[in-house]
Simulated assay, not measured.
Amino acid sequence: MPSSGALPAGAISTLGTRPFGFYVHVPFCVTRCGYCDFNTYTASELGPGASQREYADTAIDEVRLARRVLGDADLPVETVFFGGGTPTLLPAADLVRILRVIDEEFGLAPGAEVSTEANPESVGPAYLAALAEGGFTRMSFGMQSARPHVLAVLDRQHTPGRAADVVSEARQAGFEHVNLDLIYATPGESDDDWRASLEAAIEAGPDHVSAYSLIVEEGTRLATRIRRGELPMPDDDVAADRYLIAEELLGAAGFSWYEVSNWATGESARCRHNLLYWNSGDWWGVGPGAHSHVGGTRWWNVKHPATYASRLAEGVSPAHAREELSPGDRAVERIMLELRLSSGFPLAEVARPGEAARALSEGLLEPEPYRDGMAVLTLRGRLLADALIRDLT
């Protein structure tokens, strides 16, 4: 990656032809959850040269770098997503300040979606009110489970009832859109535990729920515990059963799936930032380890906050490396992402139409959209989505 951060002319020339957004990575956590392999750091892991207190200024430096790299193209920002880590470990004023600079440099599109992730224990009414006043429109809380013993396996620190309380606080602060993240198939979780978590999430009153099967990532504390035999490995059949329970309860409560792991109460409640990813939009990722994509060029930043900060202080791009996607790569990525959406993928662009016909005959694709030229997953197809995508590409 050039030290200036310059992008290929072909990528720059397509700016403005696709939706554009920002992802802002905040790499700080109070403690490290046992299942997490994200690029995050606790205070004891940061080391010299990295400062949580100065992080907003460093992130703002990268936003201004983005403006220089992308030139004077008109790029109204349709979505901004603060993720982590725990973005809400920073003062609300810091998050608002970063957002304000994005607006100053690029301009927020009318009705832009501005989201942040938060742990339920990391925010309160005053903090939420400051975010709402500062332009944030959507909150996403990491609930994960309503059962204490499941949270303990995941090394989550919040109390089970806090997620419901914080949804109410977000509503009172003025947030129309609130998401709860859940994890299923954790070792020691029963069907009844999972049902209780879903029921608690629904009762809390969000308009969006994300539910993800637990993935055991190498190098995590959870992987070590499983390897030692302290915990059983999550079972794929159990995970499938839990997904069916999620579809049953969420559907009965008025939620509809629009992506394999995401349900919303209506189109306006869908996460527009994630839809930008799934529909191959452009975005600039700010922060250590953050990934970006513009016009078929993808790049990613150095991982450690100290290295990230020092590069920007020297006026050098924090990007570590990049790749230019071939037309074939982009076609494969499109089907991998778009087939997971309820809107589906055009059959005319499927590389192996015979496999699509087989999937239809096996009940993995919906018949009516198929007749209209779209591959849309059935409920059974959602359970086998990864394997089906491999077959179609």
Rank of each mutant, 00 (worst) to 15 (best):
T186C: 08
E203G: 01
L392D: 04
S310Q: 13
P27V: 06
V376E: 02
A163G: 09
L384F: 15
A130L: 10
Q144I: 08
F28S: 05
P19Q: 07
A109P: 09
P2C: 11
S213F: 03
Y127K: 11
S51D: 08
D329N: 12
S51N: 07
S13F: 09
G21L: 03
E113H: 10
L154D: 02
G285T: 08
S213P: 01
V294T: 04
H177F: 11
A93Q: 14
R18P: 00
S292H: 01
E230N: 13
R225H: 13
Y127Q: 04
T224W: 13
V24E: 07
G373L: 00
M233D: 13
R221Q: 15
D103C: 11
A306I: 01
L15I: 06
A50F: 03
M139C: 12
R334P: 00
G373C: 03
I335K: 11
L182V: 00
S326F: 08
V63D: 04
R311A: 11
D241C: 05
Y41R: 01
L383V: 09
G287P: 08
G85C: 03
G174F: 12
V216K: 05
C29H: 07
S280E: 15
V209F: 00
D391E: 15
E333C: 09
N279R: 15
T42D: 11
L95K: 08
A269W: 06
G381F: 07
W257Y: 11
I183A: 00
F141T: 05
R352F: 14
F136M: 15
L384T: 07
R270C: 09
L365T: 02
L325P: 03
V209Y: 00
C271A: 15
W300R: 14
L70Y: 08
R330S: 12
T265W: 01
V150K: 04
S210H: 00
L275H: 09
V286T: 12
G266P: 04
D155M: 08
S13Q: 14
D193Y: 05
A246M: 04
L198S: 00
R67N: 08
G381H: 09
L99D: 05
E349A: 15
R228Y: 04
K303Q: 14
L222V: 12
T297Q: 09
L250C: 00
R225P: 03
R311K: 14
E189K: 02
W284N: 03
E368C: 01
E338T: 04
L90C: 11
P8T: 07
L231E: 06
R390Q: 13
E189S: 13
V302H: 03
P87G: 07
G254V: 04
R242C: 00
G296H: 03
H273W: 02
A11G: 04
D103F: 10
A252M: 06
R382Q: 13
L108W: 00
D37Y: 02
G295A: 06
T224K: 14
